[in-house]
């Protein structure tokens, strides 16, 4: 472990200034403000111990746009991991092959461990139900493209109990001034108590709504997430909730002009495809923003 090594493991432990710097750098990349030689001669090891097409592809695309090269793990079955090698050993060995590592792993805290043993920078590409900083940064980036992240009302809808993207986004937003978080979640799937308390500690105002209709007129941002059947106590509870859980153009008439709709994707039924063509629908743009954000992250840790 070298001490000057720069990792990006969790937005929670980043300073607001570091986040803003990444967002600004992503904005420059997004405007095409780069030569494509920034990371020339550099190699990024892409270590995904779990399937994730989008995150993996967008990190790879980001590296290639900046002129760098990719080293892929290949399928987990074919590697020494199945021979029982520890992640720590894998990371130590692969550190010698590359200039940075992006890691996706099913265990929470895996990226932090990797950061401790690696001799090159580590970026957390998602660890279990834990942190997924590039997702959070691209969420912030997408909001910032539409409005300053200050004095806004952000609605978080869906599974707020297990959904790591919303936890991480909530903490990231808490670093900004005057943010009010509105939660719209099914029974039993609101923020866990410890998350609520942590958010209150850092001065976030939390407003709980039972119905999306009540929240919508107040929101500047609506962040919709996918519901997972297995999180519900029984199939009937799921069916009942899911049938009412759909953002439609009619519903959006309740919203303020200028409100934007985000979704980490993939979506199932929670957003009517008829919403896609409305100006408020920003979720595909959000997905595209994954590339400039990851360019900024790679450039930050490698350069």
């Amino acid at each position: 472990m070298t001490h000057e090594q720069k990792n990006i493991l969790s937005v929670r432990d980043m300073e607001r200034e570091e986040i803003d710097k990444l967002l600004s750098s992503a904005a420059a990349f997004d405007r095409g403000n780069y030569t494509g030689r920034e990371l020339e001669g550099k190699i990024l090891a892409v270590l995904f111990f779990e399937p994730s097409t989008r995150t993996r592809m967008s990190f790879s695309a980001a590296m290639m746009r900046l002129g760098g090269k990719i080293l892929n793990l290949g399928s987990v079955e074919a590697t020494s991991i199945t021979k029982g090698e520890t992640l720590s050993d894998t990371i130590r060995v692969i550190s010698g092959y590359c200039d940075a590592i992006v890691l996706r792993h099913p265990k929470e805290g895996a990226a932090r461990l990797a950061g401790e043993v690696a001799s090159v920078p580590v970026i957390n590409g998602g660890d279990g139900a834990g942190q997924h900083p590039s997702q959070t940064l691209l969420d912030l980036f997408t909001i910032r493209e539409s409005m300053p992240i200050e004095n806004i009302d952000v609605g978080l809808q869906g599974d707020l109990r297990y959904g790591r993207t919303v936890h991480s986004l909530a903490f990231a937003l808490s670093k900004y001034n005057n943010i009010r978080l509105h939660t719209i979640a099914p029974d039993g799937l609101n923020f866990p108590k410890f998350i609520k308390e942590d958010l209150q500690d850092v001065g976030v105002e939390l407003i709980v709504h039972d119905h999306i209709e009540d929240a919508l007129p107040e929101l500047d941002v609506l962040y919709v997430t996918r519901l997972q059947r297995e999180r519900f106590p029984d199939p009937v509870a799921f069916a009942n909730y899911a049938s009412t859980y759909r953002i439609t153009p009619e519903l959006l008439e309740l919203a303020k002009p200028g409100m934007i709709v985000l979704h980490p994707l993939p979506r199932v039924d929670e957003i009517d495809p008829a919403v896609d063509d409305l100006p408020c629908a920003k979720y595909f743009e959000q997905a595209h923003n994954g590339v400039p954000i990851r360019m900024a992250m790679l450039n930050e840790v490698i350069n």
Binding site: T86, S88, K107, E108, G109, E116
Partner: peptide, 26 residues
Amino acid sequence: NCITNTKEPVQSKFVVHPRGFRCQYC
């Protein structure tokens, strides 16, 4: 599902938190 509960050669690390102890990994 915490990485410290696997066969990785890593010791758990907890820090004092206003309402208890927090795992530094997960």
